[in-house]
């Protein structure tokens, strides 16, 4: 097994894998968006309030959670795209963007990947969590935060 993995560049395996997962996540998101859109348009003429629970209680969290899964898969895919060799020439000119140029002894928090991780783990993750769980009204507070 080790010999097999030595013959293959792992970033290709991970990238293809992440792309497949992202495609499945896209399809699942599409299903949920279709479901919520169609359900919100259905009205029972004789019992207009019958769909209240489905439209206002069950559908919004489903949509939010699927968006969270989609954005997570998208982030993973972007991470592996960032590892592709095509960016090496650009990274070489900007050491800030090339984490692997630094040795372990000289490691610090000044490269792009580490900064991204710190930012994602701090306030961005809080905002994304709120956006995906609390609904679209949170966009207003996000814009207020950015201003």
């Amino acid at each position: 097994m080790t010999n097999y993995f030595n013959c293959v560049q792992l970033y290709i395996v991970y990238s293809v894998y992440a792309a497949l997962v992202l495609i499945m996540s896209c399809v699942a998101l599409s299903d949920v968006l279709n479901f919520t859109e169609n359900v919100s348009n259905i009205v029972l003429p004789q019992s207009p309030k019958a769909l209240n629970d489905l439209q206002n209680v069950f559908s919004p969290p489903m949509k939010s959670m699927q968006l969270l899964v989609f954005f997570f898969d998208l982030t993973v895919m972007l991470y592996y795209i960032f590892q592709w060799p095509v960016w090496d020439s650009a990274k070489q000119k900007f050491p800030f963007f090339s984490a692997d140029l630094k040795t372990i002894e000289k490691a610090d928090c000044s490269n792009f990947v580490l900064m991204l991780i710190f930012i994602i783990l701090s306030k961005v993750s809080v905002r994304v969590g709120l956006l995906t769980t609390a609904g679209y009204r949170e966009w207003h507070s996000l814009f207020a935060l950015l201003r």
Binding site: A28, V32, I42, Q46, S47, M62
Partner: peptide, 27 residues
């Protein structure tokens, strides 16, 4: 009887839920 068309539409939407469950299980 006035609800039957809407209920039929509602039942059709279960296909999207089944599909989503399958894809989420694969993920």
């Amino acid at each position: 009887s006035g609800n039957l068309d809407a209920i039929a539409q509602l039942n059709d939407q279960k296909a999207f839920l089944d599909s989503r469950i399958a894809f989420d299980a694969i993920i």
